[in-house]
């Protein structure tokens, strides 16, 4: 039933693109969201797990499930798959403008092959500023994720990474602000 609906929606899209008639705009069932995730500023404390489908943080007790897609702490991303989890998540990082990159790559998804060889290399997505100690996400980096179930695709870009206001000398948390689209129909098109 769901598949038929998707075909119907896709067909609707197709026709709406071709027919310049007064057809009502079709609601694309893509999950689009801007999220702020508070993450431990520590390379030893636990990861914060996130599910793109549910736009929600997943409890640490579910770390051995495929409920989460990515995990974050400090400046480290882990993906639910291979060395990091039971899932089949992968990532392909592309350069471009988020709104213009509308197709996830067919192949070339990197995975966390080992604890020491993660798919998202530290420092690949930010520039560290020694003056403000800020981790500034590189502009024009678009992350295409394959989710933990191995069957859905997400495009994501980081908007900002800031320290949570803190008392004392050491920041405790980083707030990752990111924007993403989750395609529930299983295609690579956004």
């Amino acid at each position: 039933m769901k598949i038929q609906l998707t075909i119907f929606v896709a067909a609707g899209l197709f026709f709406s693109a071709c027919n310049k008639t007064d057809v009502a705009p079709v609601v694309v069932p893509i999950v689009t969201s801007t999220q702020s995730l508070t993450v431990n500023f520590s390379s030893t404390k636990s990861f914060i797990f996130f599910s793109f489908k549910d736009s929600a943080v997943v409890a640490n007790t579910d770390s051995a499930t495929t409920k989460w897609d990515i995990g974050l702490r400090y400046t480290t991303f882990i993906l639910n798959g291979n060395a990091s989890g039971p899932g089949n998540a992968g990532v392909s990082m592309q350069d471009g403008i988020f709104s213009s990159l509308n197709t996830a790559p067919a192949t070339g998804y990197a995975v966390d092959t080992s604890r020491s060889n993660l798919a998202i290399k530290d420092g690949s997505w930010y520039d560290y500023n020694t003056t403000t100690h800020a981790f500034i996400p590189k502009a024009g980096k678009v992350f295409f994720f394959r989710t933990a179930d191995g069957a859905h695709y997400v495009k994501m870009q980081l908007l900002s990474v800031d320290y949570l206001p803190f008392v004392g000398q050491v920041p405790l948390s980083l707030v990752y602000k990111f924007q993403y689209s989750y395609q529930p129909n299983g295609t690579k098109n956004f």
């Binding site: 350069d95 471009g96 403008i97 988020f98 996400p137 590189k138 502009a139 870009q157 900002s160 924007q179």
Partner: peptide, 15 residues
């Protein structure tokens, strides 16, 4: 066309 900027206020990314 490989260098982008992201406005720190609006978060708009452009070349």
């Amino acid at each position: 066309g490989q260098l982008y900027k992201r406005d720190p206020i609006t978060y708009q990314t452009t070349l």
